[in-house]
Amino acid sequence: MVNNYDVKSILLAGVGGQGTLRASDIMCIVMMEAGLDVKKSEVHGMAQRGGCVTSHVRYGSKVYSPLAKLGGIDLLVAFEKMEALRYMNYLTKDATIILNADEIYPPSVNFGDIPYPDDIIPLLRINYKQVKEIDATDLAKKSGNVKAANVVLLGAISNLMNIPSSIWEEVIKKSFPEKLVKINLAAFQKGRDA
């Protein structure tokens, strides 16, 4: 179950409205600018309405499939805490996990039918060595806009990639309207420092 050649796979998982797809778009442009081949895949449509949102990003010198296989993801970034558990079966055994401390309750939890899992981090730690929790929502607030949590997470991701931070910053500058650039650059830096 090894990945052939040099292709790496990232799975971004969140909830509709968190900017998960925006983050994956930015990440793909960064990889293109860094001279890599990149493909990404996501599902639109019904997923936008409060449901799960996932995006597979695969990059390397030559990428065929935009979808990773089960057991084939090298980095999982959960924009919502519980979502990290939902996709564990996609991870390689050496995978890195970054998760946002933010919890968003689905209807079954709201009604009191099913409890929100309270052992997320320990469960992940049993199976994986590299687990990092970041309070991206709080860091985004401190940067000036709670919605920049996705860019905070991009900052954390950028630490794991061998791509100069200047490329990331340039792409972030081009991805937002001028008045939001400063906030997002601050959010990116907070993610890198976290």
Partner: peptide
């Protein structure tokens, strides 16, 4: 592969 059942998140 490790799995864990978590509360579903259907669209609404």
């Amino acid at each position: 592969l490790p799995t864990k059942n978590v509360p579903p998140r259907p669209p609404n």
